[in-house]
């Protein structure tokens, strides 16, 4: 039985800006094994974020196939993709994207609103996720009352609370100082190592990429090279 979680075949993604045709990804093939922690690096416009969006079912390829687990994302409807994302994907953004009107605990609980869990069970699971990222004492704090690093930890807790296989991180340390960034990266490493999460991390930061098992370098919409840590 194959251990591959992600199989991308002959992926192209073309945008149109007015009359201009922009091919962001060009006939890209990629396989990611279950339990991998990889960094995606490359210059701006090389297609890193577009690739991440395709992996998360936020965007569809112009051509080619995206298979994650048993799901063929390129064939799925918007509604089916939403349901699939809720179960299978955890997103971590550069600017955390927490809802400012909700406490840390309620932010973490958000993805669980899409499940049939009782309110009590949702709260319990959100509290567990917060304790995994070391923020159980900040459960009732609003995002404005947290530091950048703490906000990102809450975002990570939100990403893992529904226990998805795949975590997609878009510049997760881009807004943090070095010391805090290292803490976050260690946390991601622990999630990969101890909880067997497959992690794809887009980054510009070479030091951040060192925490991944390997780094894929992208250039002009293709995979240019692979570098092991």
């Amino acid at each position: 039985m194959s251990n591959d979680l992600v199989i991308l075949k002959d992926i192209s993604r073309i945008y149109h800006k007015g009359k201009e045709r922009v091919e962001v990804l060009h006939r890209l093939d990629l396989t990611i094994a279950n339990g991998d922690f990889l960094a995606l690096m490359g210059p701006s416009g090389s297609g890193k974020t577009t690739l991440l969006n395709l992996l998360g079912g936020l965007d569809k390829p112009t051509s080619g196939s995206v298979k994650i687990g048993d799901a063929e994302l390129h064939n799925m409807s918007s509604s089916a993709l939403s349901k699939w994302r809720a179960v299978n994907i955890g997103f971590i953004f550069q600017f955390y994207n927490l809802l400012p009107v909700l406490t840390a605990l309620k932010n973490v609980e958000l993805p669980l609103l899409l499940t049939n869990l009782s309110a009590k069970e949702r709260k319990k699971r959100a509290a567990t996720a917060l304790s995994i990222v070391g923020l159980d004492d900040r459960a009732d704090h609003y995002p404005r009352e947290l530091s950048g690093g703490q906000e990102q930890r809450v975002a990570i807790a939100r990403a893992i609370v529904s226990d998805p296989n795949l975590l997609l991180c878009d510049e997760p340390t881009g807004d943090l100082d070095r010391e805090t960034a290292d803490e976050i990266l260690k946390l991601l490493q622990a999630l990969n190592r101890d909880h067997n999460k497959t992690i794809v991390m887009v980054t510009h930061d070479g030091q951040a990429a060192q925490y991944a098992q390997y780094t894929l370098h992208m250039d002009k919409g293709t995979l240019a090279s692979r570098e092991s840590a």
Binding site: G56, S79, W84, R85, V87, F93, L114
Partner: peptide, 11 residues
């Protein structure tokens, strides 16, 4: 957009 990313459907 974050809600949609987390899996909230359009409707």
């Amino acid at each position: 957009a974050v809600l949609k990313t987390l899996g909230f459907e359009d409707r």
